[in-house]
Nucleic acid binder design. Sequence first.
DNA 1: GTATTACATTTTATTTTATAAAATGCGATT
DNA 2: AATCGCATTTTATAAAATAAAATGTAATAC
Lengths: 295, 295
Amino acid sequence: MPRPNLAAQLTSRILDYIRANDLQPDQHLPSQTLADALRVSRAPIGAALQMLEDMKVVRSEPNRGFFLVKGADELPDVAASAEAMEPENEDEWYFAIAEDRLAGKLPDRVSENELIRRYGLSRTRLLKILTKIAEEGWIERLPGNGWAFGQLLTSKESYQHGYQLRVALEPQAVLLPGFQIDRAAFAAAREKQQWLLDGGYKRASRSEIFAANSEFHEMLVGCSGNPFFLDALKRVNRLRRLVEYHITVDRSRLPLQCREHINILTLLEKGLRQEAADFLRVHIEGAGLIKIPQV
Amino acid sequence: MPRPNLAAQLTSRILDYIRANDLQPDQHLPSQTLADALRVSRAPIGAALQMLEDMKVVRSEPNRGFFLVKGADELPDVAASAEAMEPENEDEWYFAIAEDRLAGKLPDRVSENELIRRYGLSRTRLLKILTKIAEEGWIERLPGNGWAFGQLLTSKESYQHGYQLRVALEPQAVLLPGFQIDRAAFAAAREKQQWLLDGGYKRASRSEIFAANSEFHEMLVGCSGNPFFLDALKRVNRLRRLVEYHITVDRSRLPLQCREHINILTLLEKGLRQEAADFLRVHIEGAGLIKIPQV
DNA sequence: GTATTACATTTTATTTTATAAAATGCGATT
DNA sequence: AATCGCATTTTATAAAATAAAATGTAATAC
């Protein structure tokens, strides 16, 4: 009945902290300072530091606390040694359930215990995931026992509904008064698209292609500074991802998409926001194979 | 350690079912039929029917089941007699927390047990609510214990972000190919707006005014048939409601708003969707006191 | 004198357990 | 043939148990 240890997770976060602040050997590591920085209490920090002591990253002196042994540069990669921690990304299970459902492995109605057994999750964890799925509208709690799956964006029609929303949102986002170019993000996006264009699109996995695409668009909308726009887009992409995993990607269209992405960046950097918005609209309509009247 | 009884809730749902199907006295009520209709098993249906027998709404014959005593018209109002059930609307608690937070009654950091004590909720229930709030972005789970409140749309700026989204969504929704007028809903909306216009706006409570307004707009977007549009709008309205409860409403502007609402209905009924969209855009911009460039 | 640790105490969040409710299967009755 | 009534199985919930996390404070170091 315990709870999963924070300490293991904290070891890697402490190392991150050391790197971020470029701390040097023999530097003192006050537990309260670390606790404040990582937003936890001193208790799990102490446990984590003891683990790091075993790994010879820090040493302890009685009544004086912990001191760095290695410098910020020579820290070990703790990810490997702390495999036990696994923040157990909740999304992982979310997608596992979605995949199984789409693959027809889950019936229309399922009970909680059935899912607990199937995925080896604790009830607490499962319930969080189911609640999230219910929020997104493709599962519903029955009055008595069990849950019932809904439509889940399976139909061609509801798939296009997602594109309709994107057509409405994205071009408008670029025109919002709060829109500001994030130089670093733009540069990274341009580089990524160029890499895809230079043959990367042939090698990249399906999920990489999808991620690159949705990250591009989310970055763009993120620059609008309006969290509602970004949130709505992310919701659509999240569901879209589930479906696009299960249809074949026509890779021949990817180079064109990449060029269009780069073009959008260029237009925006030149300050031609209206032109960028118009182009973006056509770009999305092209990807979704839809055409809707403009406001 | 039991679970809350479904039976009490089912009594009122069974009465609804009888009314909806206009059943008459002496009609047989097969438990499986009711169970299928209400999506539960026969077990809680039986318990509910026994409760209804005590209330003299039905009678039972050995080995033959339950029969209606009263007709669909003369059913008692069970809501009063089943006060014990309380579906305990989850939203109620959601808003209670929001109110308390806005009123400064909740500190930046709270623990789960603190909230359980304060609101008298079970942990299961509380966790569902907190997860939902976290989804909406105004609370965050801390790594160790407790939760930390975030911004919650308090600033004037993020308040206007909501209007920006509505300007982008609503006019476009009216133009979507799937848009179809829901005659009944349109008639009801027109009536409601007319009632407000005819002096209702002076008497109605703040929350009634808010509800009437957001229901109007959600009804409109609902006619688009695109669930993503409706979902995004509902999310904005949900947060907006929290803030608008705490600012004074300028009632002098309400009659104009109502007339505009009615005008939108009229335009749509005449098939002038483009005109309705344009007008809707100006209408929302007026309410939010914003102006943004058009795509 | 200030800052920090070390340790004891309190509080918390999670899993496990117990249990009544809900679901289900099937012979009995109409 | 349909539906009930009852027995059995399965489920979801609140409460309990417990290790982890937070916190208060005296002791120690500088």
